[in-house]
Simulated scan of single mutants.
Amino acid sequence: MKKRTYDELIRETPVTYEMYANMVDDGNRYEISDGVLELMSPSPTFTHQSIADELLHLLKLSCRNDYVIVSSPIDVILSNTEVRQPDLVVIHRSRMSIISNRGINGAPDLVVEVASEHSRRRDKVKKRVVYAQYGVPEYWIVDLSNLTLEQYVLDGTRYELTEVYSGNDTIHSQTMPCASFSMNGIVQSLPVPPDALE
C-alpha cells in the first residue's frame, strides 16, 4: 500500500486503521474518530507529562504483577475506524492476548487521559462516549485545571461518574484494586510544581 500524507487522508471517509498505519510519518500524532482522521493537540505540557509519568510509576509499583501498564503513544484499536491513543492503558494479565506489536486490539481494562486546556472537551465528552461504546470498564480523567481525578465506571453502555478525587483522597478502583494513591501524593512527587510553571 502506498504511503499517503495527512493532507491526502484528511479528505478520505472512512479512514481505516490500515490507511492510518501506512501514513507518511510527519512527526505528528493522530487518532481515528468514527472514520475521520484527527490531528491530536499540540505537544503535551511539562506538567501533563510529569503527572502521566508519575501515575505510570505509581501504578507499576503497586500493580505490575497483575496488569500491563503502558503509556502513550500506543494505538488502542477499538475498531477498524476507531483508533485512540490514551495517555495510559491498563490491561489485566489474563487478557494479554489483545496486545500485539501494532497496539492494543480491543478494549483495555482501564484508560487514563490527562486533560489539558486543549484536550478537555475531547477527553470529557467525545472520548468518554467512545470508550463506553466499546466497553472499556473504567475511565479516569485527570484534570490539570483543578488537579482532580474523575473516575467513570461502565454501567451498561454508559459511564457513571462514581467519584471525583482531590487532595489527600485515596483513589480506589474495583477494576484495578491494587491502585492506591492520592492526587496530592502525585503533585508532591513532581520535579517542578504545576504552580511554578507558566
Rank of each mutant, 00 (worst) to 15 (best):
residue 186 I to N: 07
residue 61 L to G: 11
residue 149 L to K: 06
residue 157 T to R: 01
residue 172 H to A: 10
residue 133 Q to R: 15
residue 192 V to P: 12
residue 52 A to G: 11
residue 152 Y to P: 02
residue 140 W to E: 15
residue 162 T to W: 03
residue 24 V to E: 15
residue 198 E to N: 13
residue 93 R to Y: 13
residue 153 V to S: 05
residue 179 A to N: 02
residue 107 A to F: 02
residue 6 Y to H: 02
residue 176 M to K: 01
residue 57 H to T: 14
residue 171 I to L: 14
residue 29 R to F: 14
residue 30 Y to C: 01
residue 142 V to N: 02
residue 60 K to E: 14
residue 2 K to N: 15
residue 126 K to V: 11
residue 197 L to A: 06
residue 180 S to R: 11
residue 20 Y to F: 15
residue 39 L to G: 07
residue 50 S to W: 13
residue 24 V to C: 11
residue 116 S to M: 01
residue 41 S to V: 04
residue 71 S to G: 11
residue 151 Q to D: 09
residue 144 L to Q: 08
residue 197 L to N: 08
residue 17 Y to K: 05
residue 179 A to D: 03
residue 150 E to C: 07
residue 191 P to C: 06
residue 153 V to A: 07
residue 122 R to V: 09
residue 129 V to M: 04
residue 65 N to F: 13
residue 184 N to E: 15
residue 56 L to D: 15
residue 119 S to H: 03
residue 118 H to W: 12
residue 93 R to M: 10
residue 13 T to P: 11
residue 180 S to A: 15
residue 193 P to V: 05
residue 36 V to F: 08
residue 113 E to Y: 06
residue 18 E to K: 10
residue 30 Y to H: 09
residue 36 V to D: 08
residue 162 T to F: 00
residue 165 Y to G: 01
residue 176 M to C: 12
residue 187 V to F: 11
residue 31 E to H: 00
residue 85 Q to Y: 07
residue 99 I to C: 13
residue 154 L to E: 03
residue 157 T to L: 10
residue 139 Y to G: 01
residue 35 G to E: 01
residue 86 P to Q: 13
residue 46 F to Y: 13
residue 48 H to R: 02
residue 119 S to P: 05
residue 146 N to K: 00
residue 11 R to S: 15
residue 179 A to Q: 03
residue 117 E to N: 06
residue 154 L to I: 02
residue 110 L to S: 06
residue 73 P to Y: 00
residue 42 P to K: 09
residue 177 P to E: 04
residue 100 S to F: 02
residue 101 N to S: 09
residue 138 E to P: 00
residue 190 L to S: 05
residue 169 D to Y: 03
residue 174 Q to M: 04
residue 54 E to G: 10
residue 95 R to S: 08
residue 23 M to Q: 10
residue 4 R to C: 01
residue 176 M to V: 15
residue 98 I to Q: 01
residue 10 I to N: 00
